[in-house]
Design a protein around this nucleic acid. Structure first.
Length: 222
DNA sequence: ATCCCGAGGG
DNA sequence: CCCTCTGGAT
């Protein structure tokens, strides 16, 4: 797919899934530490649920040093309402301890260093880098990004590393983070694995998968 | 019932 | 590759 078509798809998805509202809460993060902790807590949960516990959490543990001194067991009840609270309590406490012991109490600014922190995978590291430091290192390819990119025709590959390179080549680096977000949202709401909702898809006319459907060709998906 | 901007462990 | 972790919103 050429860049103009890709950009047109990007513009339409941006209208369909407005980012400004959703991102407002990220912009209100006070510092990299809060950004990191809240992003870890955000995994598989809603922003609303995380926002509900942030004041209590940070009034009690405002810095890595203070969170590092806590026991996971005492953090657990504070974040109970977000789900996965046992795992996440352990992750954020151990992350705080590692910030203190390995990184001088600061949040590291590279993909590799961030991913050594408990509870921080590629996705979380990506979000922290872009939100806390404005560094757009790349595009995190999860199952949604993978499926949607292949269907629309942003890539021909199913290899996550190749998909990432294709997307990075197709879009200007200022919008990588947006693209990541938009493809995920589109994959969840419309371009679902089973029974994709073509009638509600704003890029259907640009989509390779839809074109093949209309041509009567069964699109091959692996 | 189904989903949430996943990560870690087997 | 698979599985588990978890409560809340819709």
């Amino acid at each position: 797919m050429n860049r103009e078509t890709a950009c047109e798809a990007y513009r339409r998805l941006l209208v369909q899934y407005p980012i400004v509202d959703d991102r407002r809460h990220f912009l209100n993060f006070h510092n990299p530490f809060e950004t990191l902790i809240l992003t870890i807590l955000s995994a598989q949960t809603t922003d609303r649920a995380v926002n509900a516990v942030r004041d209590t959490l940070f009034s009690r543990y405002p810095t890595p040093e203070e969170l590092a001194r806590a026991e996971p067991g005492e953090v657990e009840p504070i974040i109970k309402s977000i789900g996965f609270h046992r795992t996440k309590a352990r992750h954020i406490v151990e992350t705080a301890r590692k910030l203190v012991s390995d990184f001088g109490g600061e949040v590291p600014q590279t993909m590799e260093e961030l991913q050594t922190l408990p509870g921080v995978g590629r996705k979380t590291a990506n979000i922290v880098l872009s939100q806390a430091f404005g560094i757009n290192v790349g595009i995190a390819v999860d199952t949604h990004v993978r499926r949607v990119s292949k269907r629309i025709g942003f890539t021909d590959s199913t290899n996550p590393a190749v998909i990432e390179r294709d997307l990075m080549a197709l879009f200007p680096h200022e919008v990588w983070r947006d693209i990541n977000y938009l493809l995920i949202r589109h994959g969840r709401a419309v371009c679902t694995a089973q029974n994709p909702k073509h009638d509600r898809c704003v890029v259907a006319d640009l989509c390779r998968y839809c074109r093949e459907l209309r041509a009567g060709k069964p699109p091959d998906e692996e």
